[in-house]
Amino acid sequence: MASSSRGATVQVNCPEHPDTPLVEDHHAGDMICPECGLVVGDRVIDVGSEWRTFSNDKDAKDASRVGAAENSLLDGGDLSTMIAAVPGGEDSGYRNRRTISSSDRTLISAFKEINQMADRLNLPKMIADRGSTLFKTVHEGKSLRGRSNDAIVSACVYIACRQEGVPRTFKEICAVSKISKKEIGRVFKLIIKNHETNVELITTGDFMSRFCTNLELPMKVQKAATCIARKAVDLDLVPGRSPISVAAAAIYMASQVSNTKKSQKDIGEVAGVAEVTIRQAYKLMYPKAHVLFPDEFKFDTPIDQLPLQ
């Protein structure tokens, strides 16, 4: 994909298949190589400002910004203007007074923060819009009084990601907000409980591509890790373990028999889970390692040399 910025053009290609046109995943905001599945670019959403010129001269350089569109989530749609008289002396006249309710002020601040978080996470606008709608519902329901708006904003972004099928971990949400993982988790549970909000079940596959790409692992390791995680769940080897920890353990197992070995620490930093959590899931999977790998997998390190933990 070619992206331009004020005349500069940058060509993005898959390093393994440079001549293959990339496929845009509009839902997740990714550019993917159809040959090997590598996530090459993680931003296909244009978040730049919209500019127009109202000059008759087509070559005019003085672009004028278009005003913000009316926000249907605000009670007034937009800010209203009242004309108030200024009494007395030479300064008598009129002044504009922009009025806005405290409720709309809260919503505007929250919507701005949600859009900023979505931008930092490279998320499509549809997720920011869903998060904003959910925040408005929670705000008007008044069921989370006493909880900070920042915590509610973070939880709404987390829920919106899951509902749109591109989940992010609590650690990823925490990294772009001011709130701890524990508090985001608490508010998330309260929203689900009080507003009957549905969220899709997370699977190991939801994170595998992004984790492996961030770890710079080859496609054969990603495919093996995906197979390992799926079989581990199907065989009920990891009961009660979160999909994120299972995915992390599967990546660790697959990498250890490849030429691109990654430590539990490296994987934990990307997946947002503790090393001990990865180790516990891995120990449950280890006894069945010989049946978890795909049949066609070529081992660079023999499977019997896998670490015990």
Rank of each mutant, 00 (worst) to 15 (best):
R95V: 11
Y94R: 12
N96Y: 05
R120Y: 06
A84F: 04
L74V: 05
A84I: 06
N96T: 09
M126D: 07
A118D: 04
S103T: 10
L107H: 04
D91I: 12
T106V: 15
K112M: 09
V86A: 07
V86T: 14
N71D: 15
M82C: 01
A118Q: 04
R98A: 00
I114S: 00
T99F: 05
K112Y: 07
D78G: 10
N96S: 11
D78K: 13
L123V: 07
S72C: 05
D119N: 02
T99M: 09
G89N: 12
A85K: 07
V66M: 10
D78E: 14
A110T: 06
D104P: 07
E90S: 15
P124C: 05
T99H: 02
Q116N: 09
D75A: 13
I100N: 01
G88H: 09
S80R: 07
F111M: 02
M117R: 07
R95W: 08
D119W: 00
S64H: 10
I108S: 03
P124A: 00
P124S: 04
G76P: 09
R105K: 15
L107F: 06
Y94F: 15
G77W: 10
I100K: 00
V86Q: 11
G76W: 03
I100Y: 01
S80N: 09
D78W: 08
A118H: 06
R105N: 15
S72R: 10
Q116K: 07
F111I: 04
N115Q: 04
K125Y: 08
P87I: 02
R65S: 14
K112G: 06
T106Y: 03
A68N: 14
V66I: 13
D75H: 10
D75Y: 10
D91N: 13
D91P: 03
S72D: 12
V66R: 14
G67I: 04
N115F: 01
T99R: 08
R97W: 02
A68S: 14
N115P: 00
D119Y: 00
T99K: 05
G88E: 12
I83A: 00
S109D: 06
P87Q: 04
F111G: 00
